[in-house]
């Protein structure tokens, strides 16, 4: 888990030896002068700084808890529920996110392929198979952080209506930096990690995520990397 929380303002974090020793000596001097008050200030400062920093870190970015792992995908059925965990609610509040409610749909995200390697923009992936029953679905790709300026957005995703399917109703999307035949999903950036999102709309699966297994979600297979 994430346990490497930096202690802001903590003198243990100083890298050089000499300043650390001088700070230590100063602190020791302060203790001798006003030991109880100094220690109380130290404890309060440590508690405040560490508590606020860790709360900020835990609610920045994605949801820390509440995901259900299904193959390479993680489903977030409780993201907007009224009884969601406090971290999820804090993340939603900080980002202004309006997650899909259980009656509306289900969000699944993937940041790694089926073998567990992180998705990279320079690689080619095949995203194929079927989806859980849903009235409509979309598969979208995004890089982390803001969009690269000046890069034309050719396509960000496929919907269930527009995707090309084989005769058995299954589909295969190719996420690749270069043009591909069939369902080509261009990599959103030149390099770096990317994330896939599968949104199922009006799906019974939202209420019973436990019934989904890795055969019911699209498989993400790495075909090769340009590097």
């Amino acid at each position: 888990m994430r346990d490497a929380i930096p202690a802001p303002g903590g003198y243990a974090g100083a890298s050089e030896k000499a300043p650390r020793r001088s700070v230590f000596r100063l602190v020791r001097h302060l203790w001798r002068k006003s030991s109880i008050a100094g220690l109380a200030v130290y404890a309060l400062a440590l508690g405040g700084a560490l508590g606020l920093a860790s709360a900020d870190w835990a609610t920045r970015g994605g949801y820390p808890f509440g995901g259900v792992q299904i193959g390479a995908w993680t489903a977030w059925p409780r993201a907007s529920a009224a009884n969601a965990d406090p971290y999820t609610r804090a993340v939603n509040a900080r980002r202004g996110e309006i997650p899909l409610a259980v009656g509306e749909g289900l969000l699944l995200t993937a940041s790694a392929d089926d073998s567990g390697q992180a998705l990279d923009a320079t690689c080619t992936y095949r995203i194929g198979g079927g989806t859980p029953p849903a009235r409509a679905w979309t598969i979208t790709v995004a890089g982390r952080g803001p969009r690269e300026p000046g890069r034309a957005i050719l396509r960000e995703g496929f919907t269930s209506t527009e995707v090309l399917r084989s005769t058995d109703g299954r589909f295969a999307i190719l996420l690749a930096p270069d043009v591909q035949p069939g369902n080509w999903l261009p990599s959103p950036r030149a390099s770096g990690p990317v994330r896939l999102a599968l949104r199922l709309y009006d799906t019974p699966a939202a209420a019973s995520v436990g019934s989904l297994d890795r055969t019911s979600v699209p498989a993400i297979t790495r075909l090769g990397c340009a590097s």
Partner: peptide, 18 residues
């Protein structure tokens, strides 16, 4: 004591954000 306080502050901050 500082670490215990940090825990309390952490929980309070997460609950207060929404």
């Amino acid at each position: 004591i500082g670490l215990v306080l940090a825990g309390i502050v952490h929980i309070a901050a997460v609950l207060a954000i929404p």
